[in-house]
Amino acid sequence: MRPLLSTVIVNSDGCADTLRCLESLFAHPPDLATLARLVDALPEHEIILVDNRSRDGCVAQVRERFPSVKIIESPTRQGFSRNYNLGIRQTSGVFVLVLNNDTLVHPGALTTLLNVMIETPSYGMAGPRLVGRDGWVQAVCARPVLTPREYLLTQSIADPGFPIGRLWLLYQQMSVARRRSGLAPCISGACMLVRRTAFEQTGLFDEAVDFYYEDIEWCHRMACYGWQVGYVAEATITHIGDQSISKVKVWAKQSEYFSALRYFRRYHHLTDQDARVLRIVTSFGWLMRGITFLLAEGLFGYKGHARAYLYLWKWILSDPSADGTQAQRKQ
């Protein structure tokens, strides 16, 4: 018999968030005794923390405050997918919860998620209703899989940094807030409850993707294998978001760009010509963001990411690797 649930969390120099996440997990555990009987599992919840070679002393603090948590230290500093796969391979639960360290578990959320997965054997994975620290529902918790056309829109006129982009994001948030539980093409990697039999068939996160699109790709692959993806509106998790990547903005945006190329080549048959268009539009979006932040800094003293986006704009136009060949070689 396996434990009912295994949870995997990754810490990458985000100790304060990680400790708060663990506190919420222990404060609001699932109803293991009742649920485990439904799937003939042990009423146990194993928690695994993968530390990404952090320099914040988190490992020692977790060992002291949460001795039952199993800690795995990454062999090298690496991306999201590799770290989570490292942890998932060490799990033994019937269900595995992939959980970002900048999340807070609400009362009853895990019980509700597990109950839905048990009652719906066609679900390969399911995700909760994600809310930000402001209480707004996050649109990414139940969304369509992204197409190249939608990517181009988000990188240009629908960018959240521009007024029309903010209105579009608000519309998406309001739509998801009204959405009921049920099938969803894609859920967020911030919190994914995955069935072991499903990922044993479909595989884990695509390790060629460092950051971004790893959740979209996994959901898409689940569907390709015949598994459904579920959204559970009755389970709520707070997702603070953008904590660790705010320290590595340039790397994160480069990874997002290459991950988009890889995903679109694999599932949308992106041609080299299409990739060039995507590159041009992305460069335009980064330039506009850089100028916007620059104006905000000069006029209002706002500390933004002007330098990062202007660097990215120069990089994508001048670096030969930005033409998509790197993404092709990884396939």
Rank of each mutant, 00 (worst) to 15 (best):
D319S: 10
M288I: 13
P163C: 14
A177M: 09
I240C: 08
V39P: 02
K253N: 10
W313M: 15
R82M: 15
S259N: 11
W251R: 06
F66E: 06
D56P: 01
R133H: 06
R266T: 14
M192D: 07
A190L: 02
T7V: 05
N85E: 03
I9M: 03
G241H: 06
E44M: 06
L183A: 14
L152A: 15
G304A: 06
S321W: 10
S81L: 08
V105A: 08
S54N: 08
G290T: 04
Q155Y: 04
K303C: 12
E234A: 12
Y231A: 10
E64R: 08
L278V: 08
I71R: 00
D51Q: 06
L97N: 09
A27Q: 07
S74Q: 04
E256V: 09
C191L: 02
V145H: 12
R262L: 09
G79R: 03
V96M: 03
K314D: 11
N100R: 06
E44H: 04
R65C: 01
Q138W: 00
Y257T: 13
P29I: 14
L114V: 10
K314R: 15
R65A: 10
F264C: 09
A126Y: 00
Y213Q: 12
E46I: 01
C58A: 06
V10A: 05
A139V: 12
H106N: 09
V105R: 07
I157V: 13
D31P: 03
M222G: 08
V62Y: 04
G124T: 11
G189K: 04
Y212A: 13
F293Y: 15
R178F: 02
P107I: 11
L86K: 04
P67N: 03
A16T: 10
E150H: 13
C191R: 00
G230A: 14
E234V: 11
A322P: 00
E23N: 08
V10N: 01
F293W: 15
F211M: 10
D242V: 08
S24H: 08
C219N: 12
I48A: 07
R178Y: 01
G301D: 15
Y123T: 02
R180K: 15
T154D: 07
L294Q: 15
G165V: 11
K253D: 09
V69P: 00
V69N: 02
T7G: 00
A36Y: 05
L261N: 03
I187A: 05
C58N: 03
F293R: 09
M125N: 03
C58D: 00
V50N: 03
L167P: 03
L169N: 02
D272E: 10
A190Q: 07
L278H: 05
L42W: 05
V194Y: 01
Y309G: 11
V39F: 01
V248E: 01
F258I: 10
F284N: 12
Q328E: 07
H269I: 03
A322T: 08
T34E: 04
P67G: 05
V59A: 12
W227H: 07
P107C: 13
